[in-house]
Each structure stands twice: as C-alpha cells, then as structure tokens.
Nucleic acid binder design. Structure first.
Length: 437
RNA sequence: GGGAUCGUAGCUCAGUUGGUUAGAGCGCCUGCCUGUCACGCAGGAGGUCGCCGGUUCGAGCCCGGUCGGUCCCGCCA
C-alpha cells in the first residue's frame, strides 16, 4: 500500500510504502534517521538494523528512495509518526553530493542569486523556493476560474509573429525559413482580434522583450496574464473587473497556500476597492508633497515615483494598491483610446497602470475600435497602416468598444512574497546575461 | 545605452600597515555514537585568491588592463 507523507497518521501500526527524495540524513551509529520529501510534504523514516542499515550507507542527499515499513508513533509524542524501515530501496545509482544545501531554507536564503539560478534544477527543490511556484500555479488557476465564470474564453495566440506591437519595446529577431520574424512582445493584436470573435478572451502565456535592462524588476521572458473584453462603457469597467479578479486570486492563494505564505511571512492584501489617481495629479502630488527628486522638464513616472505613490496610498488610503489613470498619449501605444485633458485637448488616454507595494504589476486600458481613428493614430506616430493590414481587418468589419489588461505573473508573486528579485519568481529566468539553465 | 559596485574552498564569508605554511561556519570524507530532528564527538580532504601584466626583496592586499557577476537608472509587466 503506497501512501503520501500527509496520510501517515491514519496508518499507525500498519505496513505501508512511501517514496520520496532524501532531504536529511542523521546517522547515530546503529540508528539512522532519514527525512524524506514527497509531493505532499515530508516524513521521517528510521533505519534500525537489518538490510536497510547496510543500504543506508550509500544514501546521499536528494537520492530518490522507496521505503516499506511500519508506521509508529514517535516516542513521547502522540501527534507525530514515523516509519520504521523494513525495506529500503535506492532508486538511483550512487550520486555525488549536492553543491548547495537545500534542506534548510535559512541556508537557501543566504545563497547568492547567481548560484541560486546556476543550480536551479536543485535549488527549486527547496520548500521555500518551490512554494513560489505553487503560489503562481494557484494564481493562474484562480485567474482562469474567475474569468471562465465571467464568460471569458481562453485562447492561445502565436508567439512567432511577423511584426511588433507597440514599437517601443525591442523585439527578438528570428529566422523563419529565411523570412524575418519576431518573438511576440505581447498578445495585444491577437487578443483584440479575438474580442470580435468571443467578446471576452484571456490568455496566460510567455511574452518576450529584447530590452537590455538589468534590474530586479525585469525579465526578457515573462508570463503575461492577459484579458480583453468587448462592449465596455469605458476603462472603469476594466478597473472594476480587475479589482474583483485580484480579490479572487488573492483569496485562492490564502485558501490553498497558507503554508507557502507563512514560509515567506507574506500577508494577503485585503481590499474592497482600489483608489485611483489621475496621472497629472500623481505628478503634481509627487512634486509638491512627496519630495520626489526629478529634474525633467516633462517628468514621467519612474520607479522612485511608483514607490512614493504606493507609500502615500498606504498612508492616506490604507491601500497596498493604487490605480494610475489617464496616461498621456505620448507614453502609451497608438491603440490606446484618447481622452480629453482639462483644457479639452485629446492629449490623454483611457489607460491605467496598477501599482502594488511600489511596483507596476498591470497595464491596461480602453482601445481604439474605430478604424479611421486607429489609422490616424498610427500615422500620428509615423507608423505605416499598410504594415498592420491583418490587424486592421477586424476593425474594418466592426469592433465594439473594448479594452483589456495584462498582469505580470512573476512581478505579482514577487510583490506578494516580498522577493528581492523578479528572477526568483521565474523557474528558469531569461535575463540580459542568462540563457541557461 | 549610462552609472555604481563586487570577484578568496562546493556554499556563505573573514583576511590587520604588503611579510614566511591563506582562515572560519556550513557541506563533504573517515571513525565513534540506538531517539536524532541545526544531533554530538574526534580526525581528514578540499584553494593557480577570476585572468594577464606591472611596482616591490616579497602581492589575496598596491597600480594598469581584461573577463565575469550584482545593483541602480533609462524602458517596461
């Protein structure tokens, strides 16, 4: 009978079989204790004589083993159980010892980021490192479940594309059977096209940015949680939706990842609504009240500004989130729906960013759905509509008022768990200097 | 692309004013240990001090170059 570590208490006095990786070996002469990790947790096995005692000398840390024996209560404790090994099976040949200690999370926390990533196949096994990805899995599940219930259809758009989306971000070039091609920096055009098909769509997938940034916030490949919906009134519909969506995602993590959260001393943010501030008001607030150091003639929000705004939101509104709305057209892509400023000029956009604990985690907004306005917007930026004909098709045949947003999964996890770097929240991060493992 | 900073054992680090054989903790190996859970005790292995050159009687340490990393900014999620 093969069972999991979590079930061991129900089998006191019975013969069972368990398997897992050896995480700790404590040898006491004739008596050896093994702490073994399976997919449900850990359990202790005690080897006391017999054939297992001979075999246990060849056990190394992280070796996969199968153990058969009797479940016993630990001496002096009624709440804990161990398995007395009667049969020990080494499921691997002799192994070399691991280069870093992975059983203790305190040791793992001390390891430098390059080492942590160089030995990723090993370090991912540490419970604290692993927990990051359990939480991301629950985030994705909750994102899916919430949107599915709300009438969204999950889609998968191509990652090999012929043209870029926004012009700004750099693209990775590919050789596609002799033709130039690129890795998609965003599913933007395709998810908009699919609004004409399903009205509401979402996608969780990788996006690629060939920018040579090297910071704790950036990855050159990251997971984007995208959604796009039709027949909206304005961008406020998206803000409301995302607020509910995030509540649902955080509630799920709280429900299913209590142990993982406590490893990181992380607290789930609680909120009923998320405060909003207009971009121009944010700039004014920063310059007048928040002692923001900025010498630009036309200041733009930088990471320092984002931190200051979040500190302000926490103090004034008791919110760990803040929506920045009404970004100028100059800092938004051509497809962002224009909006009038205080002087009546169409200089702003119905777009927004969401800041969470000092870092931008979401960008979104209403899009232009009228073909002529879209073409004018392209031309206003020196883009040639001829090279966007496939995208423009859907507008020529009719698109509803629509909009969407994209959440950066790794950044969301980083901010929730208080990780030092976004790279820790990617299984095998790709950055300026790293293409392996 | 701009700036700052760091390279010493498998990992994390110390290394005095330039001085003889470069250290610590953890890990690893050997031995002892029958209730450990950061097990304990005794012993041991492990280093081209990133690399190249220079100054010096003498360089881990000073100087120049080079390679690699980390962080910040720009840009973005």
């Amino acid at each position: 009978m093969s069972i999991l570590s979590s079930e061991i208490g129900a089998y006191a006095g019975k013969q069972v079989s368990l398997h897992g990786h050896v995480q700790t070996i404590r040898s006491m002469g004739g008596l050896t204790f093994l702490v073994i990790r399976d997919r449900a947790g850990i359990f202790q096995a005690v080897v006391n004589g017999g054939e297992p005692a001979t075999l246990v000398k060849d056990v190394t840390l992280e070796m996969p083993v199968r153990i058969q024996g009797t479940v016993n209560q630990l001496p002096k404790r009624t709440d804990a159980f161990e398995i007395a090994a009667e049969k020990l099976e080494l499921l691997s040949e002799h192994l070399s010892p691991p280069p870093v200690e992975i059983a203790k999370s305190s040791k793992m926390d001390a390891i430098s980021l390059p080492t942590l990533l160089d030995y990723r196949p090993l370090t991912l096994r540490n419970e604290k490192v692993r927990s990051i990805f359990k939480i991301e899995s629950v985030f994705c599940n909750a994102f899916r479940t919430f949107l599915n219930k709300d009438g969204f259809v999950e889609i998968h758009t191509p990652k090999i594309v012929s043209t870029g989306t926004e012009g700004g971000a750099q693209l990775f070039r590919l050789d596609y059977f002799g033709k130039p091609a690129f890795l998609a920096q965003s599913p933007q055009f395709y998810k908009q096209i699919m609004v004409g098909v399903f009205e509401r769509v979402f996608e969780i997938g990788p996006v690629y940015r060939a920018e040579e940034h090297d910071t704790t916030r950036h990855l050159n490949e990251y997971v984007s949680m995208d959604l796009e919906m039709g027949f909206i009134e304005n961008e406020q519909d998206l803000l409301t939706l995302q607020t509910r969506l995030l509540q649902s995602m955080f509630n799920s993590v709280e429900e299913f990842c209590a142990a993982e959260l406590s490893l990181h001393d992380a607290k789930i943010p609680k909120f009923e609504s998320i405060p909003q501030i207009q971009y121009v008001d944010a700039i004014e607030l920063l310059l007048r009240k928040l002692s923001w150091k900025n010498e630009e003639a036309e200041p733009d929000l930088d990471p320092e500004a984002e931190r200051l705004l979040c500190e302000y939101a926490a103090k004034e509104w008791q919110s760990e989130f803040i929506y920045i709305t009404g970004y100028p057209r100059t800092v938004r892509p051509f497809y962002a729906m224009p909006m009038t400023d205080k002087s009546g000029k169409l200089s702003l956009t119905k777009s927004f960013d969401l800041l969470f604990r000092g870092v931008e985690v979401t960008t979104g907004g209403q899009r232009i759905h009228e073909p002529n306005m879209l073409i004018e917007s392209m031309q206003g930026r020196g883009l040639n509509p001829e090279s966007y004909l496939d995208y423009l098709q859907c507008f020529r045949f009719g698109m509803p008022p629509h909009g969407g947003l994209a959440i950066g999964l790794e950044r969301l996890a980083k901010q929730l768990l208080g990780l030092a770097s976004t790279k820790q929240a990617a299984l095998f991060p790709r950055d300026r200097n790293r293409l392996t493992p």
